[in-house]
Design a protein around this nucleic acid. Sequence first.
RNA 1: UCCCCGGUAGCUCAAUGGUAGAGCAUUCGGCUGUUAACCGAAGGGUUGCUAGUUCGAAUCUAGCCCGGGGAGCCA
Length: 433
Amino acid sequence: MPVVSIEHVGQHVGAEVTIRGWLYNLRESGKLLFPIFRDGTGIIQGVVSQKEHAGAFNAAKGLTQESSVIVTGTVRAEARAPGGFELHVSGVEVVQRVPESKPFPIQLKEHGVDFLLDQRHLWIRTPRQAAILRIRAEAERAARNFMDSQDYTLTDAPIFTPAACEGTTTLFEVDYIDDQKAYLTQSGQLYVEATAAALGKVYCFGPTFRAEKSKTRRHLTEFWMLEPEAAYAHLEDMMVLGEGLVSAVVQSVVKNRARELEMVKRDVSKLENIKPPFPRIMYDEAIKVLQKNGNPAKWGDDFGGDEETIISKEFDKPVIIHRYPAAMKAFYMATDEARPELSLSFDMIAPEGYGEIIGGGERLSSYETVVERLRKDNLPEESFQWYLDLRRYGSVPHAGFGLGLERTVAWICGTEHIREVIPFPRMLYRVYP
RNA sequence: UCCCCGGUAGCUCAAUGGUAGAGCAUUCGGCUGUUAACCGAAGGGUUGCUAGUUCGAAUCUAGCCCGGGGAGCCA
């Protein structure tokens, strides 16, 4: 008897199959039982008749939620069943029965955020959470495929680092061997600048850490970033690469994860439209847009969540804002020679208030300027000697950006908070489970 | 770090100064087409902690602890 996954059960109508999974829910109606099974790929309702299969009936009757089961039965097309297919159950083998004294804590009803996050290891079993994690996986695969197709080479960056990439206040310090200190990486960027000089076009993709005391729906202390970097590339190249990457990810999810998007009740029409080119405005224009909308922003201000939302509402695609004032960007950002008060930087703001999903730009290539900026930002020069070597030995113009995976996936899924789109979110004051 | 909101049964919530309640979950009983099934019954509480006001506090006051949303900062 073939073991089939629930997502493929429609190919076996009329046949007897085996499903291995868990009891998601059980409804009883006298001498008929309606168990709902899940196996990680989907859910299917079973029907068990006491008259026809007394053994299966007795095994399933009173069975507790999330007990693990191996079920055999005949697949029928059935309009009355959720999903359109139903399993007429002839055999039930209980692998492990959840004890009645300590039932599965997550019910098919509403729960509070605190409770669900404490139960995250079990919460991910519910259909909505499982769908979100599948969409995340598709987004990661699509992102890698796109970068590979553009001839970028994956060069992973270290997680232990000797010092800050960006601000020094948000570093996680860890005890390294023999009383040394190390820090969890905030960004792989400095390292991909090195591998770009070795391999030309590169990217890294992995977790990054920020000890920011931020409590918002857009923040995690541990999040994943995809960071391309290319030698001899300029700002324009990166804006084109960024919109290509985001479009490829969105379209791949729309194409390959339609069922999951339906499960999370996403309005897919808003995603189908996400194709290049994306609207681009200069920082100067963005300030004007804000002022037009009654926001008190003035030239030189950085944008917070409110400002990003106002600007993104003007467009139905992600919007690229470029050439921010140099003063508000990191020490490695290149300046615009036409207007030295501006940096050759850009951010991409997602629609619908999901905030900044990309930040990047062209890097400083002159040794003297990097040293000057390091001193200005009070960064420890001795920790950056290797980085300065990149400006000593064949320095070239180069550019790159960082894409925040969780914000991108949260936007694609339309979730309330980005904590839902990573299997085990790490947040301010929460590292369990 | 700052501002706002919250903490009552395993879960979601009600009870605004006078005997702590409901739905779900659990247990027992009923039901041959259920859709977070339904119907009947039972068990289940140190109202986050500490102090205070009061004849009397889940309720009012103060401090603390925990959580949520936001600001700053960022992807």
